[in-house]
């Protein structure tokens, strides 16, 4: 039984220029203990999906279609109070390593125990603090740094503290939105292994949102490639990496540096980003596609199954 099933999710933003269809018809499912990577360029809608899962979409956003089934309950149909109880208790989030995810005027330990206290009416403050101590052990921050303020922490420590915070209520799903983006590669590696570690130990499902396909390859079981608000390829990590089907996935993988290949010139994309307000019916990638045919720009592409676990949204894959 899938822990999370997203069906045909469509989200848009009301903007001054018109209704911006940020996410269109995205479907995927995630089993308990598994991890899914969502990869795509900026503005492709991956963060919007994350926010929709948390029920944290901004005021100008509206979900136009679809459902998000989490433990057989539709998150989109929940009242504000119900979704507040799901947040962090069931679905937690690791934010970007930006300086600001922790409140500067409260101690780190207080910010973590606050989450525990908010979801467990019976626990005492002392017991919550005890839990925070064990969380700090788990993510590898010395306990004597618990009562520090966020600005005393380095970027890596902050991110560890945020991971500790995400684990505080023993959620069954964690959404990690670009968790390593602002960190240098060494710290990035430490954070990724920390995430992999707790995922294996605690059997938590993770949705990993990133623009870095290499990061996702490292930690995820499944991968979904997103382009212009649509999922364009979905499959197990090794399937997608070994035999990418969608032209966009191919070009993404081609522009990814490896040590075992000599790359003289990196691929760079030609063309503008897709217009999400006045979108056309045809394939969204066809303007940038090297194998596009005349019909591609006229007819919407359909899913092509390559294997039971691997599919791509492209006519040319047949």
């Amino acid at each position: 039984m899938a822990l999370l099933t997203v069906k045909n999710l469509s989200v848009g933003y009301h903007t001054r220029k018109g209704f911006l269809k940020s996410v269109q018809g995205v479907s995927f499912s995630l089993d308990q203990g598994k991890s899914l990577g969502l990869v795509g360029e900026s503005g492709c809608g991956k963060t919007t999906i994350g926010m929709a899962l948390m029920g944290l979409l901004p005021d100008n956003a509206s979900v136009t279609d679809g459902m998000i089934l989490f433990e057989d309950q539709d998150l989109l149909k929940m009242s504000k109070k119900e979704i507040r109880q799901v947040r962090w208790k069931k679905v937690a989030m690791i934010f970007q390593a930006a300086m600001n995810a922790l409140n500067p005027v409260h101690r780190v330990s207080e910010q973590i125990s606050e989450a525990i206290l908010a979801h467990d009416a019976d626990i005492s403050e002392k017991a919550a603090m005890k839990q925070v101590e064990s969380l700090f052990d788990l993510v590898g921050i010395p306990q004597d740094r618990m009562r520090d303020y966020p600005h005393h922490y380095s970027g890596g420590m902050k991110q560890r503290a945020i991971i500790a915070m995400a684990l505080a209520c023993h959620p069954s799903l964690i959404i990690a939105d670009e968790p390593t983006t602002a960190l240098d590669v060494i710290v990035q590696d430490q954070i990724l292994s920390a995430i992999k570690d707790f995922q294996n130990k605690l059997k938590i499902s993770v949705i990993f949102i990133s623009h870095d396909i290499a990061v996702v390859a490292d930690v995820c079981d499944n991968i979904g490639i997103m382009f212009a608000g649509q999922l364009v390829e979905y499959g197990r990590i090794e399937e997608v990496f070994d035999a990418p089907m969608h032209p966009y996935t191919k070009s993404l993988l081609a522009s990814y540096l490896t040590l075992d290949k000599d790359v003289v010139q990196l691929n760079s994309y030609i063309g503008e980003t897709f217009d999400l307000i006045n979108s056309t019916t045809g394939c969204r990638f066809c303007e940038r596609c090297s194998v596009a045919e005349a019909t591609c720009s006229l007819v919407a592409p359909e899913w092509v199954e390559i294997s039971p676990t691997h599919k791509a949204l492209c006519y040319q894959c047949k």
Partner: peptide, 20 residues
């Protein structure tokens, strides 16, 4: 961002406003 964090933590709006 820390207000978003506070919301994601499932805190009540009143707590977010007054404490965060």
């Amino acid at each position: 961002d820390y207000i978003l964090t506070a919301r994601a933590k499932g805190l009540e709006e009143k707590v977010i406003r007054n404490r965060h």
